[in-house]
Design a protein around this nucleic acid. Structure first.
Length: 193
DNA sequence: CGAATTTGACCCGCGC
DNA sequence: GCGCGGGTCAAATTCG
């Protein structure tokens, strides 16, 4: 799968994950909710779409997005061979619901797929990705909305400890996102390789 | 040939 | 205690 680098992820040590795709959005503002950007009716809760995620996701006619990061507590968990893991010690978890034909969002980071699972309440499989950058434990889950498969639910978990590989490019391209024109679009590949 | 993806198995938490 | 569902691992396979 190609890894087109073209996005406008803000540079500095991402202290907030939503590396969105992006063409082009980045919800930053110190994690401030987008309530001032969207109509209340544009929100919905992913309370059941992705387990404990309760991040409000803004969905506006077509391809807009938004989200509110959630702090999560840590839960120790021990896996096979006694390897200790943390259930949610990655920091933040943010869910985005995006209207797109494509499931793979080009968010400027390089992801490695490590799992795929069909979920009980959804006819669509859920894909699991890890940030391919060494030492970075950010994960993301991608699945189609079970009620409207034209929407893709992307859940980021954790905080990148490195900059987006597209920062350089970012510096060369004028930001085309106005305060009220957030648009998210999938990478322009029409079909997977 | 190396890297990335696929996919079945395994493990754990939770509800009954 | 058991079964179900979700998340991760890792060997096999595919791709560049």
């Amino acid at each position: 799968m190609p890894q087109p680098f073209h996005s406008t992820i803000p540079p500095p040590a991402m202290d907030f994950p939503p590396p969105l795709n992006p063409n082009h959005i980045f919800i930053n503002s110190s994690f401030a909710p987008l309530s001032s950007e969207f109509e209340p009716s544009d929100y919905l809760l992913l309370d059941d779409a992705s387990d404990d995620v309760a991040a409000p996701v803004a969905v506006t006619g077509g391809s807009s997005i938004g989200a509110t990061p959630m702090m999560n507590t840590t839960t120790n968990m021990e896996c096979k061979d006694g390897v200790k893991r943390k259930k949610t010690d990655l920091g933040f978890r943010v869910a985005f619901k995006t209207k797109s034909d494509l499931e793979i969002m080009d968010d400027g980071f390089k992801w490695r797929k490590y799992g795929k699972k069909s979920v009980k309440n959804s006819p669509n499989p859920r894909n699991y990705y890890k940030c391919a950058s060494g030492g970075c434990n950010v994960k993301k889950r991608v699945e189609r909305d079970r009620e409207d498969s034209s929407y893709v639910i992307t859940t980021y978990e954790g905080v990148h400890n490195h900059e987006s590989p597209c920062v350089v490019y970012y510096n060369q391209v004028p930001l085309m996102v106005s305060s009220n024109a957030w648009t998210l679009q999938a990478s322009s590949q029409s079909s997977s390789s």
